[in-house]
Amino acid sequence: MVLIAVPSILAAQAEGTRRFEVEAETVGDALHALPVDDLIFNERGELNRHLNVYVDGTDHRERGGLDSSLEGAREIRVVAMVSGG
């Protein structure tokens, strides 16, 4: 079981839920289990460009990307890289 925390705009799209507990083997599987996965991935199935995903504080890309194993992981944090106006 891994805990996933999402930004407030995604939470608003999930009836106010900011933290989710999901059972998944990989980072990608965990994100796809969310009720807002259509806002996290684009229509070609790629992670939206301005989102960062951290697994226990480490950028998921440094752990092998979306296919990396969640074995031993406790928390995934989804962060929107919003800048400007």
């Binding site: 705009i9 995604l10 806002l39 996290i40 229509e43 939206n48 301005h50 989102l51 929107a80 890289m81």
Partner: peptide, 8 residues
């Protein structure tokens, strides 16, 4: 539309 989350 949203810069991060796309269009819906």
């Amino acid at each position: 539309n949203h810069r991060v989350y796309g269009s819906t």
